[in-house]
Design a protein around this nucleic acid. Structure first.
Length: 876
RNA sequence: GCCGACGUGGCGGAACGGUAGACGCAAGGGACUUAAAAUCCCUUGGGGGAAACCCCGUGCAGGUUCAAUUCCUGCCGUCGGCACCA
C-alpha cells in the first residue's frame, strides 16, 4: 500500500513531452492502414479557451485515441477560425491591430490546448487569416464564378445612419445601433452571393444519406431548405387604378384549395408594385419608410406587429371576374420568398386571420372538419389549418384538400391570359442564396476589381493572393479598406484604366466551409491535393455545438459540392458522421445589490440538505441563482487554466465526460471536479496495489481459472465490451460509469486477496489482465494518468501506442439467467432458469412461484407473456 | 412569430416498449486519527408496516399496450437556431 499521491503537475507535462518526442500523433498520408478522420469544430481565437472548448476537444480526443488503438490511421488536426468581428472591435477599443491581436490569441490558446494533452497533429495547423490559406479561397471564389455559382445582386443590410456603417444583427439592439444608439434602417447594397439555391434539391435529398447525423439536425436542415410544392397564380388588377406597367400580381401559394376563401392580396413593402405606388402616394411612402426602420433580422420582423396599408388597388379573383380583392402592402410579407406577394385566406391561416381581424375583412371558412356542417361552422380566434372537406367553394365543394388543390391547378393551368397560363405549378424553396459580402476589414478579400468600362473583373490568378493591407486605422467606424488610398485604387487588369478593388471581404462562414478539406494536405499549392483528399474525405466524425446545426453545416455541404463542380473535391458530403454536443453551464451568484460574482470568488458550503454561498474575500452572503450558459455578462465562467493547473487535464477531461450525456448541457460543479480528481488518485493507487499482487508482465496464461479469478476477468471483460460499444456511439458518460464499476469490482477483489494473504497464480494473472484492460479503457479519456499507471504495472511501452485489448465474449455468457416476473405489469418476483430454457419451462417455473400462486388464488392465469431473456408478465 | 430539442431522487444522470433510479455527487452514520484532511465500510425517492410486504412516484392532462420514462394527442416550462456573433 502506498501513501504517496499522484503528482499531476509533474506527470502531465512529462508525458506530453514523451508523446511529442516520439511524434506519435503526427499523421502520414501514405500510411497503409484504414483511415479515420475525426474533427472538432475549430475555435475562434478569442484569447482564452473556455469550458465549451474543453468539452468539445476532449470528446474528439477520446474518439481519436480509441480509433488509433483500434488500428486506424487517425487524422486529428487543429486550426483557427481566425477572421471575424471581435478582432476589429478589439482594434477599436484597444488600438491593437487585428492581426497582432489574433496571432497573440492563437499563441495563448495553443498553449492552453497543449496542456490538455490532446492527441492532435499540430504539423497541420492552419489559420484562416493566413494568406497561405485564404489565397486558395480566393482562387475558389474565381473558379465558382466561372462555374456560374457566384452572382451579384442587391440585398438589404442594417445601416447605422449616424456611424455611417453596416451593422451585424448582433450589433442591433432593440432596433438601434449598439454604439451610436441611432435607429437602424434597412439599406440596399449590391453584394456578392454564392448560388447555394442551385443545389437546393440535392442538399435536401442528400440529407437522407446522412445516416450518422442526429435526426434533429437533419430535420432542422430539411426545414431550413423548406421545399414546398405549390401554385404560382397571376391575379389580374382591376383596370384603371394600377400604375403603368403593372396589370397583375403574381402570388405563390401552397393552399390554392382555399382560393374561394381569399379576402385580400398582400405584397411586400419592397415589392416593385409597392414602390411604384409609393411614388404617387405619400401615405404609402411613409408606411414603407416605417417598415424599413427595422433591422433585417427575421426574428424581429416576424415578432413585429402585423401591419398593412390598403393601396386601394383591387385584384380580380381568377375564378370570378366580378369578385375583387383589396391589395395591401404588409410588413410581414417577405420579398425574398416566393414572388413577394400572397393571397390571404384568413379562415385557414393564423397570420392572415390576425390581419383581417385588424382590418375588418371577411372570414369565410372553405375547409370544414369531416362531419361538420358548413353552414354553422365558424372561425373564432383560431384558424382551421387541418385537413377536411371543401365548402363554400362552388365546384370544389365536398372535395378533400388534396383533390381541391389538383382541381384548382388543373383549371388555372389551362386558362391563359396574355399568352401565358394563369397559374403554374411550382416548387419553391425557403433557402436563399448565400450573401457573402461583408463591409469589414478583417476577412478574406474578394478578388475582384471594378472597372467603369469592364465591370467586375476577376483578379488574374498570378496576382493572387489579394493580401489585406496592414497599414490601416480603426479610429472611426466603417471599413478601412474602403478609405485605403493605395490598396483600393488599382488599374483594371483588362483595360489598364484606373479602377478600384472590391473592398468587401468574405463572410467568415466561407473560411470555415472548407478548412476540413485543407487539413488533408495543408501545404498543397492548390486548395486541395487530389490523392490526399480522396484518402481522407469524408470526415468520419465531426463534433461541435448544436448552434452550428444549420448554417455552418449547410454552407459546408454547399461548398464541398461547389468544390467538386470545380475539380477541388471528389465528393458531395463532407461529414459522414456528425455529433452535436451540449453547452457547459454553471450556477450564477449574485450579491444582494444584484451584481453577479464569479464562481472563483465564491465559497459554497453544504448545510445539511441546503447549500449556502459566501464571498471568499468578505464572508458576505451571496445568493445562488439559476444555472445558465457560461457567459461573461453573468460572470459564471470557470477558467480552464485554473482547473488545469489545480487538478490537471485528466481531471478536467474526466469530469467533462462523466456527468452528462454529451449531447446535453453539462453543469460544471466544484463538487463534480473534486469527485473526478478523487478518482484520478484512486485509480493511481489501484494500479500500484495491483502491481504488487499481479503476475509479472508476460506471465504465462494458466490453463484454468478459479472462481475468484473468473470474477475478476469477467468484470474486466464486461467493462471492455461496454466501453467499446459506448465509445463508438460517443456515449462517454456511460463509459465513465462502466469504468467505475470495473474499478469497484477490482478494488473489492484486491481487498479479498489481500486478506487471504495468498494470491494463487490464476488470480495473479487475472489481476494483471484486468489491470491492463482497465488502464486501457481509461487511456482515451485520461491519457496522462493511464501512461503513469501503465508504467506502474511494469509496462515499458506507451499505452497511447497500445492496441485495444481483445474481448473474450465467452466470459460474458451465463449458464443461468434471472428473469423479473411481473404480475399485471408490476414486478413481484424473480425466477432463475437455464439460459436456453424453453418458454414452456419458464412458464411452469413462474407459475410455481409463491407470489404468483397467491395472486392467482387457484384460478388459471388469463395470459402469460414470456419475453425471452428479458421478462415474464403474468396477467391474472 | 417560425423551426428544433429537452423536462426522471437533494443534484448530474441510467433504463433495445419489459425490474424506474445503474454510476457519480451531495447528505447522514460508523472505522482509522490526539485532531483534521485523505482513505475505507454502511444508509439514502416518498409514504405505511415489527416484518413479510404493500401503496404512490419519470413536468401536467388524456390515449394505445399484457406492460409506457420510452409510442400518440393536447398543454406548461426551459434551452438552441432564425441567414452580418462565431
Amino acid at each position: 500500500m502506498t501513501s504517496e499521491r499522484y503528482n499531476v503537475r509533474e506527470a502531465e507535462p512529462r508525458w506530453q513531452k514523451v508523446w511529442d518526442a516520439r511524434g506519435i500523433f503526427t499523421t502520414r498520408n501514405d500510411d497503409p492502414r484504414p483511415k479515420y478522420y475525426v474533427l472538432e469544430m475549430f475555435p475562434y481565437p478569442s484569447g482564452r479557451i473556455h469550458m465549451g472548448h474543453v468539452r468539445n476537444y476532449t470528446m474528439g480526443d477520446v474518439v481519436a485515441r480509441y480509433m488509433r488503438a483500434k488500428g486506424f490511421n487517425v487524422l486529428h488536426p487543429m486550426g483557427w477560425d481566425a477572421f471575424g468581428m471581435p478582432a476589429e472591435n478589439a482594434a477599436m477599443a484597444n488600438k491593437v491591430h487585428p492581426k497582432t491581436w489574433t496571432y497573440d490569441n492563437i499563441a495563448a490558446m495553443k498553449t492552453q490546448l497543449k496542456s490538455m494533452g490532446l492527441s492532435l497533429d499540430w504539423s497541420r495547423e492552419l489559420a484562416t487569416c493566413d494568406p497561405a490559406y485564404y489565397r486558395h479561397q480566393q482562387k475558389m471564389f474565381l473558379d465558382f464564378w466561372k462555374a456560374g455559382l457566384v452572382e451579384r445582386k442587391s440585398s438589404k443590410v442594417n445601416w447605422d445612419p449616424v456611424d455611417q456603417t453596416v451593422l451585424a444583427n448582433e450589433q442591433v439592439i432593440d432596433g438601434r445601433g449598439w454604439r451610436s444608439g441611432a435607429e437602424v434602417e434597412q439599406r440596399e447594397l449590391t453584394q456578392w452571393f454564392f448560388k447555394i439555391t442551385a443545389f437546393s434539391e440535392d442538399l435536401l435529398n442528400a440529407i437522407d444519406t446522412l445516416d450518422n447525423w442526429p435526426d434533429k439536425v437533419r430535420l432542422m436542415q430539411r426545414n431550413w431548405i423548406g421545399r414546398s410544392e405549390g401554385l404560382s397564380i397571376r391575379f389580374a388588377l382591376a383596370p384603371g387604378s394600377a400604375p403603368a406597367g403593372f396589370d397583375e400580381i403574381e402570388v405563390f401559394t401552397t393552399r390554392h384549395d382555399t382560393l374561394f376563401g381569399a379576402s385580400f392580396i398582400a405584397i411586400a413593402p419592397d415589392h416593385p408594385l409597392a414602390r411604384a405606388l409609393s411614388m404617387r402616394d405619400p401615405k404609402l411612402s411613409t408606411f414603407i419608410e416605417e417598415c424599413r426602420h427595422h433591422g433585417t433580422a427575421q426574428e424581429v420582423l416576424e415578432k413585429a406587429e402585423k401591419k398593412g396599408f390598403d393601396t386601394e388597388l383591387r385584384a380580380i379573383h381568377p375564378f370570378d371576374p366580378n369578385w375583387q380583392l383589396p391589395v395591401y402592402v404588409a410588413n410581414f410579407i417577405l420579398m425574398d420568398y416566393g414572388s413577394g406577394a400572397v393571397f390571404g385566406c384568413p379562415a385557414h391561416d393564423q397570420r392572415d386571420l390576425d390581419f383581417v381581424r385588424k382590418y375588418g375583412l371577411p372570414v369565410l371558412p372553405v375547409v370544414v372538419p369531416e362531419g361538420a356542417d358548413p353552414n354553422t361552422f365558424k372561425i373564432g380566434d383560431e384558424a382551421f389549418v387541418e385537413d377536411g372537406k371543401l365548402a363554400n367553394s362552388r365546384f370544389l365543394d365536398g372535395m378533400s384538400v388534396a383533390a381541391a388543390k389538383q382541381e384548382v391547378a388543373r383549371r388555372l393551368e389551362r386558362e391563359r391570359r396574355g399568352n401565358r397560363p394563369v397559374a403554374e405549378r411550382r416548387v419553391q424553396f425557403r433557402l436563399r442564396d448565400w450573401g457573402i459580402s461583408r463591409q469589414r476589414y478583417w476577412g478574406c478579400p474578394i478578388p475582384v476589381i471594378h472597372c467603369e468600362s469592364c465591370g467586375a473583373v476577376p483578379v488574374p490568378e498570378q496576382d493572387l493572393p489579394v493580401v489585406l493591407p496592414e497599414d490601416v486605422e480603426f479610429d472611426r467606424p466603417g471599413n478601412p479598406l474602403d478609405r485605403h488610398p493605395t490598396w483600393k485604387n488599382v488599374p483594371c487588369p483588362k483595360c489598364g484604366k484606373p479602377a478600384r478593388r472590391e473592398t468587401d471581404t468574405m463572410d467568415t462562414f466561407v473560411d470555415s466551409s472548407w478548412y476540413f478539406l485543407r487539413f488533408t494536405a495543408p501545404a498543397a499549392k492548390t486548395p486541395t491535393e487530389a490523392k490526399a483528399e480522396r484518402y481522407w474525405m469524408p470526415v468520419d466524425q465531426y463534433i461541435g455545438g448544436v448552434e452550428h446545426a444549420i448554417l455552418h453545416l449547410l454552407y459546408s455541404r454547399f461548398f464541398t459540392r461547389a468544390m467538386k463542380a470545380t475539380g477541388h473535391a471528389h465528393l458531395d458530403e463532407p461529414f459522414g458522421g456528425l455529433f452535436t454536443q451540449g453547452m457547459v453551464v454553471h450556477e450564477t451568484y449574485r450579491k444582494p445589490d444584484g451584481a453577479y460574482v464569479e464562481p472563483a470568488g465564491v465559497k459554497v458550503e453544504a448545510m445539511g440538505e441546503r447549500r449556502r454561498a459566501t464571498l471568499v474575500a468578505t464572508g458576505e452572503a451571496v445568493e445562488i441563482g439559476a444555472i445558465e450558459k457560461m457567459s461573461k455578462s453573468r460572470r459564471n465562467t470557470v477558467d480552464p487554466d485554473d482547473i488545469l493547473s489545480t487538478f490537471g487535464a485528466d481531471t478536467a477531461r474526466w469530469f467533462m465526460l462523466s456527468d452528462s450525456p454529451p449531447d446535453r448541457d453539462v453543469i460544471w460543479t466544484e463538487e463534480g471536479v473534486q469527485g473526478a480528481y478523487r478518482f484520478v488518485q484512486r485509480l493511481w493507487r489501484l494500479a500500484h496495489e495491483l502491481a504488487e499482487l499481479a503476475a509479472p508482465v508476460g506471465a504465462p496464461r494458466p490453463k484454468e481459472f478459479g472462481a475468484a479469478a473468473n470474477a475478476v476477468r469477467k468484470a474486466a471483460h464486461t467493462a471492455l465490451a461496454r466501453v467499446g460499444e459506448d465509445i463508438g456511439r460517443l456515449r462517454f458518460n456511460r463509459c465513465v460509469a462502466h469504468v467505475y464499476e470495473a474499478a469497484n469490482a477490482l478494488s473489492a477483489s484486491l481487498a479479498d486477496a489481500r486478506s487471504a494473504k495468498k494470491v494463487p497464480s490464476d488470480l495473479a494473472f487475472a489481476f494483471r489482465e484486468a489491470g491492463e484492460i482497465l488502464i486501457q479503457l481509461v487511456a482515451p479519456m485520461m491519457p496522462h494518468l493511464a501512461e503513469e499507471c501503465w508504467a506502474a504495472l511494469g509496462k515499458k511501452t506507451l499505452v497511447a501506442e497500445a492496441t485495444w485489448p481483445a474481448l473474450e465474449p465467452g466470459l460474458l455468457v451465463e449458464d443461468t439467467i434471472t428473469l423479473p416476473v411481473q404480475i399485471n405489469g408490476k414486478k413481484r418476483a424473480d425466477v432463475t432458469v437455464a439460459r436456453d430454457a424453453a418458454d414452456k419451462d419458464v412458464e411452469a417455473a413462474v407459475l410455481a412461484l409463491e407470489p404468483v400462486q397467491r395472486a392467482l388464488e387457484g384460478r388459471a392465469p388469463k395470459r402469460i407473456i414470456v419475453v425471452p431473456q428479458r421478462i415474464v408478465n403474468v396477467v391474472a
